[in-house]
Amino acid sequence: MTWPGARVVITGATSGIGVAVANRFREAGASLVLTGRRPEEPDGCRDADVYLAGDLADEGFVASLIARAVEEFGEIDALVLCHGLQGDGALEEMPLQRAAALLEANVLTVFSVVQRAIPHIREGGGSIVCVSSRFGLVGTPGQVMYSAAKGGLAMFARGAAIELAARGIRVNVAAPGLTLTPRIAEGFGRKPDPAAYTATRAASIPLGRLAEPAEIAEPVFFLASPAASYITGAVLPIDGGFTAA
């Protein structure tokens, strides 16, 4: 499916799933305003892309990001929020500061970007997609606060979907499972037996393998696009059956 001329803002666009999502929108013919924390422009940027590096916890940066998108586009067809922070840790051992950082990075920054963007998202057809996690749908030892943050993100999106429905702005959530991003591959590679560790993790997934980033990007694109014009308030697991098992 193509979406030529779509005006799209993507956060978290410098790594992993965010890169794949940006690539999918490029293939569709969209114009992109991208952001991430890395100072360098991400690989694959076209001349037509705009990239702004910054911290979404900084309200001033969020304001400048949306202002630049409005300057470029006039209005926004889709806002795709791929950024976030993962954090493992036992409930009894996690410092309050770390827990607060997880909530800020995964929920409060999304709130900040969405709140600032809403007046500029096209009414009667604009969309917002939040990228959550399978751990936002299930409880998992060692992931309590990460699950709370990603589950909170899903509920934020559902509430926003109802609040914005009268304006014709859709809000949906993609909940990826374990995905073979460069960061995950690097982490697996540091294990004493990377192949055995990868096989063990894959065996925990009903489809028996990790996702490729492009397999996450495709449904994210679908949810943002006019093909999903009657879908709002949905949380779509993209996890190889993990949350269904």
Score class of each variant (00 low, 15 high):
residue 3 W to C: 02
residue 6 A to K: 09
residue 7 R to Q: 15
residue 8 V to F: 02
residue 10 I to S: 03
residue 12 G to Y: 08
residue 12 G to R: 12
residue 12 G to I: 11
residue 16 G to L: 02
residue 18 G to K: 07
residue 18 G to D: 02
residue 20 A to K: 08
residue 20 A to E: 14
residue 21 V to I: 13
residue 22 A to R: 14
residue 22 A to K: 10
residue 23 N to D: 13
residue 26 R to I: 01
residue 26 R to V: 01
residue 26 R to E: 01
residue 28 A to M: 10
residue 31 S to F: 05
residue 31 S to M: 12
residue 31 S to D: 12
residue 33 V to D: 09
residue 35 T to W: 02
residue 37 R to I: 07
residue 40 E to L: 02
residue 40 E to H: 04
residue 41 E to M: 01
residue 42 P to I: 12
residue 44 G to C: 04
residue 45 C to D: 00
residue 45 C to R: 11
residue 47 D to V: 14
residue 53 A to T: 11
residue 53 A to D: 06
residue 53 A to Y: 04
residue 55 D to Y: 05
residue 56 L to S: 05
residue 57 A to S: 15
residue 59 E to N: 08
residue 61 F to Y: 09
residue 65 L to E: 07
residue 73 F to R: 04
residue 75 E to S: 09
residue 77 D to M: 11
residue 80 V to K: 03
residue 81 L to E: 13
residue 82 C to A: 08
residue 82 C to N: 14
residue 84 G to V: 10
residue 85 L to T: 03
residue 87 G to C: 03
residue 88 D to E: 15
residue 94 M to N: 00
residue 95 P to S: 14
residue 96 L to C: 03
residue 97 Q to F: 00
residue 98 R to M: 10
residue 98 R to N: 09
residue 104 E to G: 01
residue 107 V to N: 01
residue 110 V to C: 07
residue 113 V to I: 13
residue 114 V to N: 03
residue 121 I to Y: 11
residue 123 E to Q: 14
residue 137 L to A: 02
residue 138 V to Y: 05
residue 138 V to T: 15
residue 138 V to D: 05
residue 141 P to R: 15
residue 142 G to M: 12
residue 142 G to W: 13
residue 143 Q to V: 03
residue 145 M to S: 00
residue 146 Y to A: 08
residue 147 S to R: 06
residue 149 A to D: 02
residue 150 K to E: 08
residue 150 K to I: 11
residue 150 K to Q: 07
residue 153 L to N: 02
residue 155 M to I: 10
residue 156 F to M: 07
residue 157 A to Y: 10
residue 157 A to I: 10
residue 157 A to S: 13
residue 164 L to T: 06
residue 166 A to Q: 11
residue 170 R to T: 10
residue 170 R to W: 04
residue 174 A to S: 09
residue 178 L to M: 11
residue 180 L to Q: 09
residue 180 L to N: 02
residue 183 R to A: 14
residue 186 E to T: 06
residue 189 G to Y: 08
residue 191 K to C: 12
residue 192 P to Q: 14
residue 200 T to L: 11
residue 201 R to Y: 13
residue 203 A to M: 05
residue 205 I to R: 06
residue 208 G to V: 11
residue 209 R to F: 07
residue 212 E to H: 03
residue 217 A to E: 06
residue 220 V to Y: 10
residue 222 F to A: 10
residue 222 F to W: 15
residue 223 L to R: 09
residue 224 A to V: 03
residue 226 P to I: 14
residue 228 A to F: 13
residue 229 S to V: 02
residue 232 T to N: 11
residue 232 T to H: 12
residue 241 G to D: 08
residue 242 F to P: 01
